[in-house]
Design a binder for these strands. Structure first.
Lengths: 206, 206, 206, 206
DNA sequence: CATGAATGAGGTTTCATTCAT
DNA sequence: CATGAATGAAACCTCATTCAT
């Protein structure tokens, strides 16, 4: 098994099991919180013994790592074409916000789970991995978009890293909190409101 | 002891111990994360036996509750005069952002700890209390400020709850993440950038 | 495991472990008293880690409950045929006393343990479960026997509940105390003495 | 303090405190059971700090020992004149049963507490002191009464120790259990029923 | 591949006891 | 004499992990 992990060569059936386990972990975490997501609970949800998880993943850490990796990949695949379809910086910003909202509607549990893991999970060093992977993910992309918009004169001069950070937490955090406070919130219109705010905050000519 | 808790009458020396324990809990949580903040660890930090904590707090839950209560009180006392000093809505928004940044600089660990507790801690029902208390705290205040600004014509028409949520997570989340990613970040200028963005996003005449 | 508990379907090997653990608990309790019967002690006696007990029983409460259940079942199976073999009320009373003595000789520790648990154990509500299950067990049976004997004219008119209570504590308590005071007491002749006393106390014609 | 204990010379006020503490221990044990009778609980009931108990009693063991000693003394003082007033063995047996019932009605908590302590408490050697003191107390007295009755020809020939044991547990155990099962039971008539049974079981001429 | 059984470290909490004030 | 504060041992329980089958 560990050999497989190192070589990266995995059976088809094994890949399926890993995917199933990750999905169950996602659901358990999203529904009951990270603290309740014990190996036993995840195994029960998957209908398998908890030792199966240990068989397929070296560690609970590895499972969480893979969970996050999966989520990030899904998110990226979801977002990328929407960003590419927009020629202007303003369009890309809007697409980022509304696309993220759409992603969160589609993959709600996955998004909630990633947030939980990011905040509660511990890295290999034992220190919390707060927002290491997931929030860093689109940072370069966002900064690039904003920077290009400034160069082209479309966007005003602001600190690119600050604005990128604000954008990121607007979608990964603000919307999630809003949804958690009121599960019936309309993410679509919520995203449009945010998009407008960002358009005003970033455009060049006031 | 529980009698004390119920009556609310506490010795001076007891109040001091409670404060000390809370402070140590804050430091441990901020530095090592919630998961590492065991009673033993907090006790070790305070130089006392872990049972002393049980002596002064009924529960680990009560300790965390008091920690959050303390932090919220401190934050409120810090922010309120700064908001009151500003007559205009724009001024209050700016004060909210910069004041929060200043608070975070002054009480860094306390703020980090509250975030950790909010995300990782479990309520009495066993369910995570994700950001229940701390983030809800200033929600009415913010919404009131924004609403009044719209009524007076100073601010444009936007969804008050969305903008309030964005403001809130900008200070409680965006800045924290930025600081965590790069501890040397200048919160002051970071806050000014944010304040500008919000000024543009909320003012009435574009 | 809890799944097993709920479904009631248990492996053969698991049933064996449970029986072993219960037996060890019985021995520890009988020899050292309830207060000394910690999980660690029971585990040590069984040659297993204490967590194994937690694996097989949800709770210490469940362990004690199962212990009592086992003892009561054993006792009933032991006594029932002896009672059924006697046609007369006097015969049944004698069989009850002597049969119980025989049971106590055969399952000494088990009987001692049940007494300890009955007196020291706490129910789920935290209140002592003094003699709830074990002593109530044969109450209806005894009262029925005595009542039938009165109806048939074989026994005199007395308060059935008082006499049943006396009978019950004569076997569950008097004999135990006697044995505890002097471990070499001859339970057989002790029982015969008791049987005679009850025959005289209950028969119709003086 | 320990000097006082050893010398046996105690202040008046000290004696009063000890009596008060013992009484509170009795009440707590009778009402909540031995397991709930912690030093803190007893102290709370007495309105004093738990360390006061440690000041007046060397040990929790000593407290329990004194509690039992007090109860036994009270019981003896209560019973002795009633026994002495009866010239015949049958009269003494009846007086023992009914007198004990009366005692239990008068000092209910004390009696319940002694039973709890007898069954749950641990002796200095760490072994349970199950009924060592209290049940042994009147054993010689009872046996003497029965023996004398046999010698005088008033009582039939039975094993004195068995009958004494039965009498003892009839009052210390049977009645208590009856009262515990149904707090409204009439101990007086209960005792009369028992007295009749023992009269029939012990008299010489059938 | 999968499982049930077992483990041991570690967490929270309780409690009798001690001690300076 | 009495108190509040502190202690440390010990109890129960949880959980990630390992292993023989």
């Amino acid at each position: 098994m560990s050999a497989n992990n190192e070589r990266g060569g995995r059976t088809f059936i094994e890949e399926a099991r890993r995917a199933q386990i990750i999905q169950c972990a996602v659901d358990v975490i999203a529904e009951s919180g990270y603290a309740r997501a014990t190996m036993a609970e995840i195994g029960k949800r998957a209908g398998i013994a908890k030792s199966v998880i240990s068989y397929h993943f070296a560690d609970k850490g590895e499972l969480m790592q893979e969970l996050v990796r999966t989520a990030v990949a899904t998110y990226t695949q979801f977002l990328e074409p929407r960003l590419a379809a927009q020629p202007t910086a303003a369009g890309k910003i809007c697409a980022y916000v509304t696309g993220s909202a759409e992603y969160m509607s589609t993959y709600t549990n996955m998004h909630l789970a990633v947030l939980e893991v990011a905040f509660n999970g511990l890295g290999p060093d034992g220190r919390p991995l707060t927002a290491s992977i997931p929030l860093e993910t689109h940072k370069p992309t966002l900064e690039r978009i904003l920077h290009d918009g400034q160069v082209s004169g479309e966007l005003r001069q602001f600190d690119v890293r600050v604005m990128a950070g604000l954008l990121r937490s607007a979608v990964t955090h603000t919307m999630v909190m809003a949804q958690r406070a009121d599960p019936d919130v309309d993410l679509d219109s919520y995203a449009r409101e945010l998009a407008t705010a960002f358009a005003l905050a970033t455009r060049d000519r006031p």
